[in-house]
Amino acid sequence: MPETITATREITLGEAVREALAEEMRRDSRVFVMGEDVAQAGTAFKVLSGMVDEFGSDRVLDTPISEAGFTGIAVGAAMTGMRPVVDIMFGDFVGLTMDQMVNQAAKVHYMSGGKWKVPMVMRATLGATRRSAAQHSQSLHAWFCHIPGLKVVLPSTPYDAKGLLKSAIRDENPVVFYEDKMMFRFKGPVPAEEYTIPLGVADIKREGSDITIVATSSMVHVALSAAKLLEEEDISAEVIDPRTLWPLDEKTLIDSAKKTSRVIVMDEGYGRYGAAAEIAAVIAEGAFFDLEAPVKRLCAMHVPIPFSPPLEDATVPTEKTVFEAARALLGGK
């Protein structure tokens, strides 16, 4: 069943993120935000606008342009009693933080035999089509999914963003939280009352019976548009958003695949060795004998993201590619 949201209020994804942070900072004095231009500027995307006025520059802390350094500081601060939320302006810059995340944050708990823990959140962006070219457009979340000890969250709606970010901040582990930079102004219903969404629970965004489309982040909306097109052809598509790539709600994915027997997996990261490949493998292992066709992946094209609009647009799956892939899987039905 799709999660039913009973809210009359609509806010943007950016506002949802800000609300989640502000509520958690009011609730727990150990929570603080650090990153480049987060205070007066409220981040390059203005997501945190006004927060410094409420919480002060000690808790909404501008850093030097030192992603590795401040991520490392967050790891140490998390180990010793704080709950840092680091802001990585463009997800492309996570490369600079990799040792801190992969060799430090992810492993501290295990290497210490469970003695130290690292309750921190890294917020980063993903998504192309902003005309920002190859170093400001990548969706690199799969890198973190590969690493035991990390959790990875990719919300697709304001409702999910708020509930999941609150859970990520309360989690005892390092969590990487990805926001699609093209979706900060995307609006959706969000209750005014407090709520959280547990990590590891997929959401069925649309029920259907002929084909399952598993999609992440903004691809969920491409999948939903494609589902409408398919409906006109009498094809009933189910759209599932795993919401967190780790922990991954394998059961919901497999159950849906068993029900519909045909699956497309969409993700804006690269296809090769990517998140969609993992989900496809999970479904192939869990629902093989119920499948009528091979699981199809639709991902970012395997090229550096180009600048020129017609070139860039060609790199991302569209509702048309989903529509055609679905028809092909259904044998041209």
């Binding site: 140490g76 998390a78 704080m82």
Partner: peptide
């Protein structure tokens, strides 16, 4: 806070612990 097998790997952690101590 732990020994570290990445050369320079604990510089961030140490500074973060000092950050938390101050806060």
């Amino acid at each position: 806070l732990g020994a570290n097998a990445i050369v320079g790997g604990s510089a961030g952690i140490a500074t973060g612990a000092a950050f938390a101590a101050k806060r």
